[in-house]
Nucleic acid binder design. Structure first.
Length: 255
DNA sequence: ATGGTCGAATATCGA
């Protein structure tokens, strides 16, 4: 089973690239973030033509998450548990092929110490509660998304400069760590111990050419699925194409 | 140089 995640930075502007990527990589499940479109305007048919079912939760201009799957999607849920007051569309989850898949877009946090930063930390806690509610046996879970946190020194281009900054702050690391204490493994690190492998590069400046990026797009697997994970890759070639998203797709194979 | 670029929307805001 191949599962992928991709912050597409607008599904409408990226749909041709997404269709092309799906044709070439043939994921069973593709989680998307920052779709930036209301559900009625989501390019659903383009994915259905490829044989994929689509579940989406979008809004105008900002955020938005989706799951495309060539296996039937069951028990689709939108938002965090107890998230009735949340206007932002940042989480959608569904069952596919016997696994519980979650597509999450964690708040950026704007700046360390801001109200948005506190909301970012709270989102991690609430995501943990949502996992408890959706998968109490802690098995068969694939939590994908843009976490807006680089887990450790290997995941940032300049650890000394980044330490304490947004995306590499101790509070963010504690929040991510507590979430992973649910029993999750970082799939990429099961197969790639090396530093300097990133999933996001800022559009601004020459960061891509200098490989000044961050690894903030993660596939987190429950222990039972981690034991079956045969491959994990970041498709950074996608970031080097014309009109790219600022994020590369990440994919895992589970045997 | 608190910059730079992209996307949504059409002046700025978010990232």
């Amino acid at each position: 089973m191949r599962i992928a995640t991709w912050n597409v930075n607008s599904i409408r502007i990226r749909i041709d690239a997404v269709v092309d990527w799906i044709r070439r990589l043939e994921p069973d499940v593709l989680c998307m973030q920052e779709t930036k479109v209301v559900d009625d305007d989501f390019p659903t048919e383009e994915l259905q033509r490829l044989g994929y079912a689509v579940a989406m939760a979008g809004q105008k201009t900002y955020n938005g998450v989706a799951i495309a799957s060539r296996l039937p999607l069951r028990d689709v849920r939108v938002g965090l548990s107890n998230g009735e007051g949340d206007a932002d569309k940042r989480l959608i989850s569904a069952s596919a092929g016997g696994v519980r898949v979650l597509s999450a877009y964690i708040p950026n946090g704007k700046s360390v110490g801001s109200p948005s930063f506190a909301q970012k930390l709270a989102f991690f806690t609430r995501l943990g509660s949502t996992l408890e509610a959706q998968a109490p046996d802690r098995r068969g879970v694939v939590l994908c998304g843009d976490f807006n946190v680089a887990p450790d020194e290997r995941d940032v281009f300049d650890p000394a400069r980044m330490r304490g900054q947004l995306h590499f702050h101790p509070d963010e690391h504690r929040a991510l760590g507590e979430l992973m204490d649910f029993g999750l493994r970082d799939a990429y690190r099961l197969h790639h111990p090396e530093a300097g492998r990133f999933s996001w590069w800022d559009y601004r400046g020459a960061g891509l050419q200098k490989n000044e990026g961050l690894r903030i797009d993660l596939v987190l697997l429950s222990h039972d699925l981690a034991a079956r994970c045969t491959r994990a890759e970041i498709d950074d070639a996608e970031r080097h194409k014309d009109k790219p998203s600022d994020h590369a797709p990440v994919l895992v194979d589970i045997g």
